[in-house]
């Protein structure tokens, strides 16, 4: 689904955090290669899921897109406009269109501000004066996210985790964004509450046509939410495809391992996927393996994998827009893939 005119166009995006050390004068002694050459696009109104284990650079990617971090390399284009190194002032026009929802509902709301102030702050900063005033708009937003508008004057500590996350969503909506980066928005919540928040986001995506970059650490959450899914490993995208393609026909061994961990919600006449247990730890991004970064844990790794980094391409047998970075992609028949039933409620 590579759109000719994507909303967000990321090419070669790289972020290396310098590691300082030495005595008596500190100098750069290495770099954490948190994100290393990402390419992906997000179309208008589309939801892209970004999945990977802890430490693979998902949050860093999100923070690069929202420009909380300065990229080391590559480019970020929003509606064709290069915002890779835009400063705060240059960024101002698109600031309101790219918003973020954070992972930790306890740390993402200022404990000294009322809900009203938290949600109207973005409007104040951007000089937006909605008809009827800020308070009216805040009440509307509270209603949109399923909170009682009368709680306008309450403080964050008076709300539960799920309610706080809804406040965070309302804050992001205050500027009527076109793109929301949601960094593991539900992983801090109770399982029973996760679905409610995901459903809320899904409604917003459909009703308001907001595009999402939805970050998650497993494939279960994005499954119901994202039309397109990118799988990350150690700072690189190893596979990206439309949802059905990815779930039905995973070509990268890592994707397959992740998928095997997703509990099936399908009819029982279809054999469950055999569970693949990955052994070993994720290598340090300070010193990633040569060639394919997954090779230290891959059961198919060969000499070639150690010397040659596999490019992210449409390997033989992939549908249009399904890219895989592997020298020896999995084949369809090795994967007893059940069809994804589309009506599974979250």
């Amino acid at each position: 689904m590579s759109n000719t005119n994507p909303l967000l166009d990321v090419t070669g995006l790289t972020k290396h955090f310098p590691v300082m050390g030495g005595f008596p004068f500190k100098r750069k002694i290495g770099a954490v290669q948190a994100v290393d050459g990402l390419d992906f696009q997000v179309a208008e109104g589309e939801s892209l899921g970004l999945v990977g284990e802890s430490g693979c650079g998902k949050s860093t990617t999100g923070r690069l897109i929202t420009r909380l971090l300065e990229p080391t390399g590559g480019s970020i284009k929003y509606r064709g406009q290069d915002i890779t190194h835009a400063g705060r002032k240059q960024l101002a026009p698109v600031r309101s269109e790219i918003q973020m929802i954070f992972q930790d509902p306890y740390a993402s709301l200022n404990p000294r501000q009322t809900v009203g102030k938290i949600i109207s702050g973005p409007m104040e900063i951007n000089g937006i004066n909605p008809p009827g005033g800020h308070e009216k708009r805040v009440r509307e937003l509270l209603e949109t996210v399923g909170l009682n508008p009368e709680h306008y004057n309450r403080f964050p500590h008076e709300f539960s985790g799920g309610q706080r996350q809804r406040i965070g969503v309302a804050r992001a909506l205050a500027l009527e964004p076109k793109l929301i980066v949601a960094d593991e928005p539900v992983s801090a919540l109770d399982v029973s509450i996760q679905a409610q928040v995901v459903n809320l986001l899904q409604e917003l995506q459909q009703d308001l046509g907001i595009a999402f970059v939805f970050i998650a650490h497993d494939l279960a959450v994005v499954r119901h939410f994202s039309q397109r899914v990118a799988v990350m490993y150690l700072g690189k995208i190893v596979e990206i495809a439309d949802r059905e393609d990815l779930y039905d026909n995973p070509r990268h061994p890592y994707t397959r391992a992740l998928l095997s961990a997703v509990p099936e919600a399908t009819a029982d006449d279809i054999p469950a996927r055999e569970r693949i247990r990955l052994t070993g730890d994720v290598p340090s991004p300070l010193n990633p393996p040569s060639g394919c970064r997954f090779r230290t844990r891959c059961w198919k790794a060969t000499e070639k994998c150690a010397t040659e980094a596999p490019p992210l391409v449409q390997v033989a047998g992939n549908k249009e827009g399904h890219l895989t970075a592997c020298h020896y992609p999995e084949t369809h028949d090795t994967v007893p893939a059940p069809r994804l039933s589309k009506d599974v409620a979250a």
Partner: peptide
């Protein structure tokens, strides 16, 4: 990255419908 629930968490309600249960004591909310 597990969240670090602050001590304020103890004050919290777990009700998720968007209503705070003490609304009887505090009708206008």
């Amino acid at each position: 990255t597990l969240p670090t629930p602050s001590a304020a968490a103890s004050l919290e309600v777990t009700d998720e419908i968007g209503q705070i249960p003490d609304s009887s004591a505090n009708p206008k909310g």
